[in-house]
Design a protein around this nucleic acid. Structure first.
Lengths: 239, 239
DNA sequence: CGGATAGTTGAGTTATCTCAAATGCAGTGG
DNA sequence: CCACTGCATTTGAGATAACTCAACTATCCG
């Protein structure tokens, strides 16, 4: 829970596109903390810690600055569905700009630096700036597309397809952030988390991932993933 | 494709809540067509017809006035996922207020009367009225909740749970529209459509539905559904 | 170093799917 | 009005993708 303005250089430069906070909002993310807000709004949190719990009424909107986070919902009996992984510059949902989002948990996957904006201030900023308003629309639209694809994945695609698509989606988003090292990327996800994102079990994820490695599609190790055969992977995913 | 202002009385009175267009927008739905728009914006369409195709660039936002419609995405090989069923007063997605929604098909399930608003006019109306703006936020939030639940259903719930929940969700929404007749409701859905909404096959939907009937939870016939044992159904759904 | 967490692998199970045939029902055209 | 065609539903039988359980190993973290 320390102030770390230095950490923000990481989100300054990237040309965010899809679920990301685009230019306008990124500017906000990097802006100095408004004098009006009486507390430091920049936070850092350890891997695996909860950033915002499902029953927490929060007056803040959270923006990831560095690291990976995830958003999930869960059932009383422990079944859990990951709704999205958040990369730097991303927000848990446009909807949280309007109302606190009950039932969703945001947690850190790696160590995360994030920034909290008072919902009200953020709303005012957005609604008073036509530029930001347009951005809002685009993000809303992108978010909807993401939700649609998730439903299509979970409802209609096979395990292989879902996992291939997850890998490709992450690599694409990381590339947009300039976070790909050739075909290699950071890959801090646990198989359990992949399972909860794809509606599978961890055991099955393990089998599929190993099958992918045996077929020389990808290579995983040291918490990093290399795409060896992008077109093969895409063929699997596009089905 | 005829003008049918009379049809709108049906959407005038209901206290819309979740995905519905609430008070403010309902007022818009019932307002006279702006003189500026050079064509009749009220349409009627037969059951099973497509209202807006997946590749169609539409400058309109569609609001259902009477009847049931559905929104879906599909894969090239025919696999299809229904994203939501639309009841009177509902809009396909808040996001369509900002951008045309490619990849989604809106089709009529029953005969449908719907209204088209020019996206731009609707945007202007919403952004110039703080009341509508608040409504927008609520709807955005409700829509996100719906999407989250859909993912949780498809990824983590059993067939029985999904189907029980679909029935309860529809009955709840119909009740909000004053469209329940005691425990009885219109139920124009084909099993194929239920299957595509729940990520199952039509054959399996048939089995589950019959099992529900054998257990005296529900009763289906004549395109109507009666909930015989609401608490039993809820117990199944809540898992 | 030691305990906890994460990943692998095998064997057996099951929810759901596929295929297929039989029946019902609705709309069409003669 | 009826035969005809096409869709929707039901039901059975068998197949399979993904799951569960369980044991083992590897990796991480304090």
């Amino acid at each position: 829970m320390t102030d770390k303005p230095a950490a923000f250089t990481a989100c300054g430069g990237c040309a965010a596109r899809r679920l990301n906070l685009c230019a306008g909002m990124q500017r906000m993310a990097n802006a100095p903390v408004p004098a009006s807000s009486g507390r430091a709004l920049v936070q850092s949190i350890l891997a695996r810690r909860v950033i915002c719990g499902p029953r927490e009424w929060s007056e803040f909107v959270y923006v990831i600055c560095t690291g990976w986070a995830m958003v999930s919902t869960a059932l009383a009996d422990g079944r859990r569905q990951v709704l999205s992984f958040l990369l730097p510059g991303e927000i848990d949902s446009m909807a949280s700009l309007f109302e606190p989002r009950f039932g969703r948990t945001i947690e850190a996957i790696t160590e995360v630096h994030y920034r909290k904006f008072r919902r009200e201030e953020m709303q005012n900023a957005v609604f008073s700036n036509p530029d930001l308003l347009r951005t809002l629309g685009e993000l809303c639209s992108a978010e909807r597309t993401h939700a649609d694809n998730l439903a299509l994945d979970l409802g209609r695609r096979t395990a292989d397809e879902r996992i291939a698509r997850l890998i490709l989606d992450l690599s694409k988003r990381l590339a947009q952030h300039g976070m790909m090292d050739g075909q290699m990327m950071d890959f801090p996800l646990r198989q359990r988390q992949i399972a909860d994102a794809t509606g599978l079990t961890a055991v099955h994820v393990s089998r599929v991932l190993n099958e992918f490695q045996r077929s020389a599609l990808i290579r995983i190790g040291e918490r990093r993933l290399t795409i060896l055969d992008a077109s093969g992977l895409r063929r699997l995913a596009e089905a």
